[in-house]
Write a protein that binds this DNA or RNA. Structure first.
Length: 274
DNA sequence: CGCGCTCCCTGGCCGC
DNA sequence: TGCGGCCAGGGAGCGC
């Protein structure tokens, strides 16, 4: 499901309901998602206050008042919804239900189960296997033309693969990779190391801009992505190439093409993107 | 080491 | 209406 803008939107939506709220009860309806839940997940959560919610890459990090935090990843199809009270009946694929002392309930639903939920000591987050090898956050000062150019200058892979690689920069998934390359006039097939520093500078700016614009629009709703309150995002109406195979390019009116890279669909305008 | 292929899993949609 | 095939926002692991 979600790329960086969607996870950021979810995080922002969760904070008003959950920050300062105390976990009363945790219901696990299965033992695992992509990886097994920690044995002590329930004990570690129950009775804890949510001190804050952060995001790193596409991971949500719930800080507890103990030394722990809960790490959550939504995979492709994961949703987290805040409900005013505990639902009478669980929906299919509701895997984790967290009840809070004020009566609200957080429900984690993930049909494809590519998501994960685990625990980590706050002091060990940066060292955690999930985080230790990650590249810079694209919306932080750690990401700029210099950083991206140095990450790509020796790469033989196509530029689209490279910017979707979390070692290079985190949070850029299939949609925003396609859109930022279109804005930059760069072919997704072009070899990373062959791109000029000037072009990499443009791409850097376009990655940042497209992510920021998507966050302002509340993310992109394709099939079933919704905010923590159930509302939809609307950045999908701003897509220039993603999902538009065969349609006219908005710039040159030639047809947008779809190809496969790393088993995933890439959309681009062969005329505008060289 | 860098890179790409395959797989994890479910569900929706399309064509026959 | 049913079934097979293809598609989907992510990421780890393995083999070359």
């Amino acid at each position: 499901m979600p790329e960086l803008p969607e996870v950021e939107t979810i995080k922002r939506g969760l904070i008003p309901s959950l920050k300062g709220n105390i976990i009363k009860n945790v219901i696990l309806r299965r033992k695992n998602l992509r990886i097994p839940f920690p044995e002590n997940l329930q004990q570690a959560l129950e009775g804890q206050k949510i001190e804050g919610i952060k995001r790193r890459s596409k991971y949500l990090i719930f800080e507890l008042d103990s030394d722990d935090c809960m790490i959550m990843h939504l995979g492709m199809s994961g949703k987290v919804l805040v409900k005013e009270k505990k639902p009478e009946e669980f929906e299919k694929h509701d895997h984790i239900i967290i009840e809070f002392s004020d009566g609200k309930t957080l429900v984690f639903n993930d049909a494809r189960r590519f998501g994960l939920v685990t625990l980590c000591k706050k002091s060990e987050l940066e060292k955690h296997k999930l985080f230790s090898a990650l590249g810079p956050e694209p919306l932080s000062n750690n990401f700029n033309e210099e950083v991206l150019y140095n990450a790509l200058r020796n790469k033989s892979s196509p530029i689209k693969n490279a910017i979707m690689d979390a070692h290079v920069v985190v949070g850029v998934g299939n949609i925003y990779a396609c859109e930022s390359l279109f804005r930059s006039g760069l072919s997704p097939l072009k070899k990373s190391s062959s791109i000029s520093k000037k072009k990499i500078g443009e791409l850097t700016a376009n990655i940042i801009n497209v992510l920021n614009e998507a966050i302002e629009s509340g993310g992109s709703t394709l099939k079933d992505y919704v905010h923590a309150n159930g509302e939809m995002g609307y950045f999908q109406h701003s897509f220039q190439v993603y999902g538009r195979e065969g349609e006219d390019c908005g710039t040159c009116l030639k047809a947008i093409k779809r190809v496969k890279q790393l088993g995933r669909s890439t959309f681009y305008c062969p005329n505008c993107q060289k």
